[in-house]
Nucleic acid binder design. Structure first.
Lengths: 251, 251
DNA sequence: CGATAATTTGAGACGTTTCAAAGCGGGTGG
DNA sequence: CCACCCGCTTTGAAACGTCTCAAATTATCG
């Protein structure tokens, strides 16, 4: 497995005390297994390269990961962010290579779970299978919503949607402040790679959303949504329906 | 469940005799269960609307389905095509609504599988779980490759990739002719909804690929790839690696 | 406080969309 | 069997949104 960390211990963002979504449902056997091999990552550490041999998956304890794919010319698309409490399995259908690059977007702590261990757990624990499945379906729904907007919408809509998705997921793990404001450990470049835009245009678009009073962006990507209804309307989102769709536990 | 068919029995495209990928691996119990409730659909039939109450999933015997999502203004994104031998489960994380619109793109035959039946089967048959998981991982990989290109590439690349993906999947189910040529039951409008382009631009791009000798498109979307290497290069694809990634059985 | 990276803003180029009209082709009804 | 009609494809021309390039500004860190 690859490990490469441009040491840049910055951004003290961590969602301490966040519990995995299956907390309390599965026997402690899992807790122990998962807890055994944890790794502390500094910002920029790459857990797996695209095409790498890989036999483990990851559960994020704190910090964010990004799963990205690249074209030969270098253009990068971030496919998913992995937030505290979430799992990510980068293993392709061949069973032994990673189909994405997995990178820590800030200092992070992850549990490393061996593929065979995981397979055994999944086979033995129907409850774990169930919660895994819920997570998978929710992830697929998120991916679909993004695809819909990247394929069919303007920059404004793509970013409005992304901000709403972040808001919901951050609220879910309790990583928002009293006003629903939240911080994302991303630069505009990364937001661009996520939404399929250039970083310059991300900047302009965020600026416009600010100007129109829909949001406020503080330093270092502190997001505050001021007019949630208008933002949802812009993004073409029904807030309640979306939450049901993309947040696993809201069942 | 909804049923609505703009009767237009055209396009005699069917992949007769195609067997599901788990053929022979799972006991015949499954074959019987799955085979029981089959439905014959005419082109344009909608199996499920977005947000509809739904308690079943589908296995396609012949014909193509499209899974699509729409924005309030009407823009449509096709997320996945379901080919003969494939399954599709449109049920969202809430367990009882469809998160996509599922539509027959030509006359088709599908097996309808009740959600509870399916859950029981999955729980009882580890082999089925395994093959299900392989299919899921492959579908996720396909979705990711598309997202990468819709987000980061030009029209030419998006379409080149789509044609390669079709080619691989059609080859896999034996629906190509001697020369590797194949037919897809889509119009340019649908290819546009799949690639995130306007139908006009799909037309221009296909024309250019023809002019440059990469492909030939006959009447009614008969595709022949003439310079596979060049097309793959254009799409930014390593053919062998991609096949491994997006075709379930190539394990 | 200086060096370096990230954001912001401007101006022009480029690719894609939109609108519009013309060219097919296949199916239907006369 | 032909004529008509309708939907899909093709082509052109102009409008639009986003990208690229470049420079100024602002934050960050040693």
């Amino acid at each position: 497995m690859s490990l490469q960390g441009p040491s840049n211990p910055q951004t003290n963002w961590t969602a301490d005390g966040v519990l995995p979504p299956w907390h309390g449902q599965v026997d402690t056997n899992l807790e122990r297994t998962v807890g055994q091999a944890t790794r502390v990552l500094s910002k920029g550490t790459i857990l797996a390269f695209e095409g790498d041999e890989l036999h483990s998956l990851f559960s994020v304890k704190s910090g964010w990961l990004a799963a990205a794919k690249s074209l030969p010319e270098g253009e990068r698309q971030i496919l998913e962010f992995v937030l505290p409490g979430e799992f990510y399995d980068p293993i392709a259908a061949d069973g032994h290579t990673s189909f994405v690059q997995l990178e820590a977007l800030c200092d992070a702590v992850v549990a490393v779970i061996g593929a065979t261990t995981w397979a055994r757990l999944l086979n033995d624990l129907p409850d774990l299978r169930r919660s895994e499945r819920l997570r998978d379906v929710a992830a697929r729904a998120r991916q679909s919503e993004r695809m819909l907007r990247v394929g069919q919408s303007s920059a404004e809509v793509r970013i409005a949607y992304a901000l709403i998705e972040f808001s919901m997921r951050m609220t879910d793990i309790g990583a928002t402040d009293e006003d629903g404001g939240y911080h994302i450990p991303l630069g505009q470049q990364q937001l661009a790679e996520f939404t399929g835009l250039s970083s310059v245009h991300v900047c302009r678009t965020l600026r416009r959303l600010n100007r129109n009073g829909l949001i406020t962006t503080g330093d270092h990507m502190d997001i505050n949504i001021h007019d949630e209804a208008a933002l949802a309307d812009l993004a073409g989102v029904d807030l309640d329906a979306l939450r049901q769709e993309i947040i696993p536990e809201a069942a």
